[in-house]
Amino acid sequence: MGQITLQGVQKSFGPVHIIKGADLDIADGSFVVFVGPSGCGKTTLLRLIAGLEDVSGGKILIDGKNVVDTPPAKRGLSMVFQSYALYPHMSVRGNIGFGLKMAGLAKDEINRKVEAAAATLNLSPYLDRKPRELSGGQRQRVAIGRAIVREPKAFLFDEPLSNLDAALRVQMRIEVTRLQKQLGTTAIYVTHDQVEAMTMADKIVVLNGGKIEQYGSPLELYERPANLFVAGFIGSPKMNFVTGELALQKGAATIGVRPEHLKIERDGGGGWQGTIAVAEHLGSDTFLYVDAGPLGMLTARYIGELSLHAGDRVSLVPDPQRIHRFDDGGNALRG
């Protein structure tokens, strides 16, 4: 069981208010990702849940029990750090087994569990090496092994893959997701990589400036962003925003259209007119950065190759079903 609830959780460092009241309900067995720009408080929120920082206000419930006064060792959570934080003086076996040793398990039981975890993570040949004799990816696996072997109520990950190269990151991303599903253990995962967020999460928490902007499934966030911040943060390339006359016509202060929801037509169509400033041809996709005069720069995405080039005139037609409307305060208007 690993059901985690935050109720009005706040955190200040001295006079600086970092987490401004977070409410969150994390279902048992779900994979929740915290995303947000740098410095928005993702790590802080995770550390509050872990117990590595004390809350300044509010409650954290794990399986219904308020744990704000429980030390990290007693919360039954395990954490994977960005820096791996392996014990340098212990072998891989010692690292993975340390939590079990602290829990007072018998030696042969520890060995059995450590070997099972190592097998799952392809670490068996390295059990007797020291962390400094491992590659970055292997160290990461050890850190994950250390987390899973204890069968915790939940895993906490703080940007665990950000020190790996791109290819390994994709591979580990899949492995972590697979492992979490297989174990069925609740996971909270911090990242600022939105591809990681979209692909791994059952639910995403978008944080900004210490506030939760939206909490929902990846597709909910993509299709129905609650406000301008989420609309701009989720999706790549970024959503296009248009203000002024055009927005007012739709009864909104701002309207937003994702690049993939702009139909690209040669000049003369009925859409928004502009000149291509930059065209990026990736083969699988074509990205156009269009100078649309009073509307500003717009980004359009075409799936597949489109032979248009810088300087060409185009007209962009927004899909009427996919226009997002926002009020003065930046909140989404529905209906």
Binding site: A85, L86, Y87, P88, M102
Partner: peptide, 10 residues
């Protein structure tokens, strides 16, 4: 981090 990891490890 390493000390915190130990704390998380119980």
């Amino acid at each position: 981090d390493i000390l915190e990891a130990a704390r998380m490890d119980g």
